[in-house]
Simulated assay, not measured.
Amino acid sequence: MPTTARWAATLTLTATAVCGPLGTTALAAPDLGPSGLYAPSALVLTMGHGQSAATVTAERAVTLNCAPTASGTHPDAPRACAELRLTDGDFSALSVRAGVMCTKEFDPVVVTVDGVWKGKRVAFERTFANECVKNSYGMTVFTF
């Protein structure tokens, strides 16, 4: 093999080895904003018994961070983040799971969500008839 061909092959292999992984990583990076940073998605979810957030003391609170990776004190952060990505962070778009049966007991539960989703401020409050009904919305977001 001539020397020129060897140098060309060596340079090609070196460029592929060095630049190839960089291109793959850049394509896989989710939710990059215009500055090249992740748009924050960090939420605090609370739950308490009562009829409104104004009159309820939070009994449980969890954190949920969805960017750049799922984390926080939520019991199933990866699945909760995946579920929220499907609704683009719209908590009111979470639907009731099929086949869930709850009693008609009235023991109101209030859930609040505060934080940011993809860099936008989020404030959500919903009162459910009881904890079973709360847990039936979506798959994992309100199950904490």
Rank of each mutant, 00 (worst) to 15 (best):
M1A: 14
P2L: 13
T3Q: 09
T3W: 14
T4I: 12
T4H: 10
T10A: 09
L11N: 00
L11K: 02
T12E: 14
L13Y: 15
T14D: 05
T16W: 06
C19W: 13
C19Q: 06
G20Q: 15
L22K: 11
T24I: 11
P30Y: 13
D31Q: 13
G36N: 11
Y38K: 04
L45D: 01
L45K: 01
T46M: 00
H49C: 03
G50E: 11
A53Y: 02
A53V: 07
T55K: 08
T55S: 15
A58Y: 00
A58R: 03
R60V: 06
T63F: 01
A67I: 13
P68A: 14
P68Y: 08
H74L: 00
H74P: 05
P75E: 07
D76H: 06
A77R: 00
A77F: 01
P78S: 05
R79L: 06
C81F: 04
L84M: 08
L84Q: 07
G89P: 05
D90V: 14
F91Q: 10
F91D: 05
L94D: 01
V100P: 01
C102H: 02
T103G: 12
V111H: 03
T112W: 03
G119L: 10
K120R: 07
E131S: 13
E131F: 09
E131N: 06
C132P: 06
V133Y: 08
G138W: 04
T140K: 09
